[in-house]
Design a protein around this nucleic acid. Structure first.
Length: 106
DNA sequence: TTGTTGACGCTCA
DNA sequence: CTGAGCGCCAACA
């Protein structure tokens, strides 16, 4: 199925140290209402190669809403901090500055 | 086939 | 500013 693949492609294009939103990806793919499906797609992204940096995808608010679905050994927040993205209380700090919009950046 | 659920997002009170 | 509700749509029981 191409939807998942498209999602993976876009996510893999996210620059190091930047993040984007489900809605942004959905919009870029042409279906702004597909935000929920993005999550479903990423849910299967762990089994995909090359690895999809799903930790760089957060909701529109910059909240790590998917942190609970991450494997315990790779905490979303940790990985982000590791790339220079500060995370506070499950939320991206300065989200506006690190936000990467495929619509305008691509 | 029908009903419920959810890594979301927007609107209204 | 915070919280509740609704719409969307695919996966799953």
């Amino acid at each position: 199925m191409s939807f998942n693949d498209d999602v993976y492609d876009v996510v893999r294009l996210i620059p190091h140290g930047r993040v984007t939103a489900y809605g942004a990806i959905a919009k870029y793919l042409g279906d702004a209402r597909a935000s929920r499906r993005i999550g479903w797609a990423l849910n299967s992204s762990f089994a995909v190669t090359p690895v999809v940096p799903a930790h760089r995808v957060v909701n529109r608010n910059g909240m790590l809403s998917g942190a609970m679905h991450f494997p315990p050994e790779t905490p979303m927040a940790d990985m982000l901090e590791n790339e220079g993205v500060k995370v506070k209380d499950g939320q991206v700090v300065d989200f506006d500055r690190v936000f990467w919009d495929p619509m305008t950046e691509l």
